[in-house]
Amino acid sequence: MDPIVRMTNIAKHFGSVIALNGVSVDVFPGECHCLLGDNGAGKSTFIKTMSGVHKPTSGEILFEGTPMSFANPRDAIAAGIATVYQDLAMIPLMSVSRNFFMGNEPVKTIAGMRFFDHDYANRVTMDEMRAMGINLRGPDQAVGTLSGGERQTVAIARAVHFGAKVLILDEPTSALGVRQTSNVLATIDKVRKKGIAVVFITHNVRHAMAVGDRFTVLNRGQTLGTALKGDITPEELQDMMAGGQELATLEGSLGGTV
């Protein structure tokens, strides 16, 4: 099987700061590819390169086998690469259905004028939410009344509904409680089974282990390697993320709880 996205030797410099220094990642359809790394490892810069926010300084991006250069996020979305940002996924003051169709509003024509098709939007929103296991009081319920996990789920459902082939999730579980996290992880599993490639960014090894098929660890702007599920233990991943030695000293005083 060919990778849907192949990124080779990606480098990104911001002035004198080298944020990425040769990162290579392959993402296959229907897999959950976990991108792990501590704060400052370059995870966010890397996914922003993949989603068209940043242009790489050097390196090659192949999307479905052809070289791609996205001018802006809109291009990437049109190609089928959707990104769900941790806290910028939804607008809390707006209703679920208005959020769901934000930027992709369905229209119907009445007397020559184009109006927002609320009936269609509401129906689709309710169906999609039910399929994801969220019971809404109504499509006009404001997103602010949903929990953090539900908001992530709505954002994921939205990306899938609008034809994402690659779904990038930027730390979707980092601010969530135990139950909400398991809901989001279950959602990731559902999406993967539809044949969509999921890129799951996290610094929590347990969350990664729960759903990941492959794991790539970033450290100081470089890839430390990619491992398949079963080839690596959580402890090894944890060590790679933290750069080995520093964690070893920590582990002594904290009894291996980190």
Binding site: P73, R74, Y85, L88, I91, M102, G103, N104
Partner: peptide
Amino acid sequence: DAQAARYVG
């Protein structure tokens, strides 16, 4: 949320 709106086009 202007930034969230920009992200979806």
